[in-house]
Nucleic acid binder design. Sequence first.
RNA 1: GGCGCCGUACCCAAGUGGCUAAGGGAGCAGUCUGCAAAACUGCGAUGCGGCGGUUCGAACCCGCCCGGCGCCUCCA
Length: 486
Amino acid sequence: MLRVYNTLTGSKEPFESMVPGKVRMYVCGVTVYDYSHIGHARSALVFDVLRRYLEYSGFAVEFAKNFTDVDDKIIKRATEQGVSCDQITATYIKAYYDDMDRLGVRRATLEPRATEHMADIVALVETLVAKGMAYRVEGDVYFEVDRYPMYGRLSKRKRDDLQAGARVDVDERKRHPMDFALWKGSKPGEPSWDSPWGPGRPGWHIECSAMAMRHLGETFDIHGGGMDLIFPHHENEIAQSCGATGKEFARYWVHNGFVQINQEKMSKSLGNFFTIREIFDKSEWPDAVTGEMLRYFLLSTHYRSPLDFSDQSLAEAKNALNGLYDLFERLKEPAPAHGAADEHMREANTRTRQAFVEAMDDDLNTPNAIATLQKLRCEANKALEAGLSAQGRRAVRDEFRSLGSVLGLLQPDQWQFKRQKADEGSGVRGALANILSDDEIAGKIAARLAAKQSKNYALADQLRAELAAEGITIEDRPDGTSRWKR
RNA sequence: GGCGCCGUACCCAAGUGGCUAAGGGAGCAGUCUGCAAAACUGCGAUGCGGCGGUUCGAACCCGCCCGGCGCCUCCA
């Protein structure tokens, strides 16, 4: 049974869904005013894996991930570039999808946008006003934190402690410095929607409450996001949602840790971030490979721990993955009907599956889960040496494919990944597209084999060197034939 | 000032009270090979930031210290 760390209680808890066999989860997506960076990739990936694992465990998952498409930063960006907010959001929503596709992050089942839920948002604010939990100041509406006694329970903060902090320009019109905007009256030229308080737009937090409740109900199972959202975003979501309904909002709060650069938080404000597309574009590998490298790297650390990004760590992920794909190549070779290691292999498969599930059940311990796959790789290699039947080979391969799918790794459509041509593009990847064709490679390999047979090793080595110069590695089989890889 | 996190081998990273401290990467040695590549085998922390304490027993619990970081303001 899955146990997850719940930020609300500060401990790992057994996961039990409200409705048996069905999970409803909401994850805070991105504000679409710029390209996504690796931090966004990690968050998206963590919840992609949580979703995949819940499905693997037999749950039907309703998964909502929003796009914040009304926001100060979007307005600012639009003004700077002299285009409409719609153009900005359309551009970056498309970019987000492109990035996620390259990472192999599956679409959520629901992807609501704030601009499409204005009626829900306005209705929710009206409820809060009617209940006396929100107050109006000119064209703005604020949530009054003093009306929600449990305020601070997620972030484990007390209102007074927060007050003690050095606060920037406290709005004198607010009754308490922590009160936050539910609705903001809009200035001329800004996007606006009609409301009982005049034309305006929603505050940051209210959209998530409105959309989550609209699609998942007043109480649902899991709410997730990056750790930096715990306060104030999620704290405020809880206050306004529970305030409005009198019911619990989300039952499990799951938060992922940061990606860092040189031990420092990567963030826009520090300017030390890498965008996802930047990583792909400078990679010398095709998208499928780079995406899998990134996934492996991001999942090789537990989701709640900080994770330092570097070229070296990415390269290590690549090398670790290579060992797996080398094995898969070997598994594809012709094999006998019976093998001495068949029985042992079957046991190893079963053991691995159990260990994998155990690791994932423990608050999504993906590093451990990956370790079980690496152990299986070692077992399979040994089995190949001892003798593994065609059926035995297929069984291990299926095991890797099945468990790998939970992590979004080692998938069938990516099996041939080393042989894929880099798609059109520029730079290194463009250059790769012009390299030797498979036929040319096969020709050189045949020539080398002939040279070897006539003991002309100088020529054989030269041919091998020519291939190596094109990034092609040859592996000789015991029978004298060769396989190759890029 | 308030709240919280982290420090495990050359690098990355699990483990959080008790068998030989997972796994990966890099390295070295060996087997195989015409030579390679891949694979396999072996080597690699008597110790888990430091010092005390609790315990029959601690990397794991407690205290102090050192070092690094996060949140409290938009932020995955």
